[in-house]
Amino acid sequence: MKHKYTLLIYTENHIGLLNRISIIFTRHKVNIESLNTSPSMGENIHSFVITIITSRDKAEHLRKLIEKQVEVLKAFIYEENQVIAMGVALFKISTSSIGANNILEQLIRSSSARIIAVEPEFIVVEKTGTQDDIKNFLDSLSGFDVREFIQSGRVVVTRPMGKLTDYLRQMSEMEEKD
C-alpha cells in the first residue's frame, strides 16, 4: 500500500548534500513530490522537507539510507496525520482579465489570499495553505487570465513533541567510543 510520507531531515550545511540525498530517491525510483530546504534552528543546521508517495517499508529504508549519510544529523519520517503542513503559492494575473466587478477581490478575500503587488499590466496574489487549498484556489481562478503560477515546497511542523537537540543528545549517549 502506498501512502504519502514526509521526511524531515536535519543536516549540516554542506555542498553536494542535496545531490547525495536526491540520488537515494532516484536509485529507488521514488518520485519526490515536493522538496523544501532551508536553514533551521540551531547552529548551522539545515533542514530538508521531502514528500514522497511510497510504501511504509520503502519509506523507512529510504530514511535509514539518508540518515547513513555522514552529514545528516537525523532523519524522521511522518505520516500525513502526524504533520501540519503549509505551502505558499504566487499567482500573476493579467489586469485586463479582472474586469470592473469585484469578483476577484471577493474571491481573494474569501480564500484568505492577498494581493502583494500591483502593476499596470498585472497583479500578484499570494495564497498560503495546504496543497489542496492552493489547488482549489487555482481552480477558482479559471475565469481569469493567470499568466504565471508557482508553488513552494511544503514545510511542516510535526505533532510529536520531540526536539532535535534531545535526539542528538540521545544519539551521542548511544555511541560507543573506541
Partner: peptide, 10 residues
C-alpha cells in the same frame, strides 16, 4: 568525531 556521524552504537 563528527557531530552528524555516529558510526558505532553500543
Amino acid at each position: 568525531g563528527i557531530r552528524s556521524y555516529h558510526p558505532k552504537l553500543k
